[in-house]
Amino acid sequence: MNDFNLLLAVFLLVNLIIALLRVARGPTDADRLLAALLFGTTGVAILLLLAFTADTLVLMDVALVFALLAAITGAVFAQRAWRMEGVGEGKDGNS
């Protein structure tokens, strides 16, 4: 069972790494951020799997904090970083 959980964790991690491609592709900043948001959920899953793998249930607390704070990145992004029209959609940022 433990190995199985671990395997799934590996799978989810691969999944996550692939999702990081979205960061590169864009085109809008929101698309890039989606990868980070995905991390909130996937990270929770991976942590929970790890928690039940080695009987380190304390990792659940880490997952809890992950889930609790997952909203903040997105909210800051929406409220602060991605406001009004950009200098040019899709290629704004460091100019």
Binding site: V58, D61, V62, V65, L68, L69, A71, I72, A75, V76, Q79, R80
Partner: peptide, 23 residues
């Protein structure tokens, strides 16, 4: 007795502050 402590707790509180500010 297990992982946790003032810093982590403080950080969570701080996150609450951030969330309040954002909302």
């Amino acid at each position: 007795h297990q992982p946790g402590g003032a810093f982590q707790a403080g950080a969570v509180l701080a996150a609450a502050g951030v969330l309040l500010n954002l909302s």
